[in-house]
Amino acid sequence: MNLIFKRHVFLMLIVASNTSFAADKITSKETQSKASDSAVIQTEQKHLMWGLSIAEYARYEELMKGIRGSISPETISPIEVLGIHAQNEAERQKYARLWADMMEKDTERVLAFQRAYDQAWKDKGNRPLIEISQLKSQSPSITPTAATHSSGLPVTKMIVATKLDGCAACDKKIQQLLTSMLVDKTLHLDVYFSDSSDKPNSVIRQWAISNRVDAEMLKSRRLTLNHGQSLMNQYQLDEKQLPATFKVDNNGGVKRVE
């Protein structure tokens, strides 16, 4: 009798164990299914966010598994990837227009926020945006840029030679760079004015106000405003060549990019 009871208990344990195992398998399959569904939903949301079809986004993901993913920055967009790897001219033009539209809208958002920031600064008492004592007249002091931003990303250092007045291309370039600095917090910029040496420092202050320069950029030295005649001499530039933009590499080397 005791033996029969033990066998009965053993069989019950086996049944319970199998039931538990089956339940675990069902739960595991349900979890995997939910994870798969979530991944599909996320992919759909991503392709919609970029204005792409599911097939286009899938091609972008496939391209990123190859050389494009190994040599491109993490911030490269799916539209840029597809445009770079366009299969024909019509496709290239399509992605170029799509990217231009997105950048235009994003610039509008950035500038709208900048205007709100300008008003907030005025509400704080409209203190001077720059201190005249910070203006420099010497050539740029180039130091290696291996420093990193608080985000952990490497700092990008740029130099631009421009004019205070009479250069529409200069004004456009400055606005592009200032907008980029609002979006990319790792970008540092030194601005040198070719025509400021014989003018009062207040003219540069007025230039900063007119161009809606962010006071925090100046305070943190992400942006510097400088008299630039010595830089013009150093790089043998004349005003017909302006604006002139340079990039400083990690070893302190300077290379003109435009």
Rank of each mutant, 00 (worst) to 15 (best):
E89Q: 14
A120R: 13
I204H: 01
P140I: 09
E216V: 12
D101K: 13
D195M: 09
R205Q: 10
K124R: 14
H149F: 11
A169E: 08
M49W: 06
R97V: 14
T162S: 04
N226D: 01
I26W: 02
N18S: 15
I4F: 07
Y95S: 02
A35K: 15
S70V: 05
K199N: 04
I26K: 09
A161W: 01
R59Y: 12
L48F: 10
L3I: 14
I41A: 13
V203N: 06
I79P: 01
K173Y: 00
G51Y: 15
P144F: 07
E239M: 06
T245W: 02
L182H: 15
S210P: 00
A244F: 03
R97N: 10
Y192Q: 03
I159H: 03
T31A: 12
A116W: 07
A244K: 06
L242F: 02
T145Y: 02
I84P: 00
K199C: 01
M181N: 11
T75P: 00
D106N: 11
P200V: 07
Q176V: 01
S220W: 01
K34A: 13
D238K: 10
N250D: 05
M12A: 14
K173E: 10
Y235Q: 15
D190R: 09
K94E: 05
A58Q: 14
I159C: 03
P140Y: 14
N251M: 12
Q114R: 15
Y57Q: 09
R97I: 12
G125S: 06
R92I: 00
I41H: 09
D165K: 13
E44M: 08
S141F: 07
Q32L: 13
D171T: 11
T179I: 07
L189F: 12
V40S: 03
N251W: 07
K25V: 03
F5D: 04
E216I: 13
T148S: 14
I84M: 12
V248L: 12
Y117E: 05
R92Q: 09
A55S: 15
Y95K: 07
A100K: 14
D184S: 13
S210E: 14
A208G: 09
Q119I: 10
R256D: 04
I14T: 09
G228I: 07
L129W: 06
D198W: 01
M181E: 09
Q234F: 10
D24I: 03
E44Y: 06
L63H: 10
A86H: 14
E89L: 11
S17K: 14
C170L: 03
D249P: 12
F246L: 10
E74T: 15
E258Y: 11
E30F: 10
R68E: 07
P243T: 02
T145F: 03
E74C: 04
L242E: 02
E44Q: 10
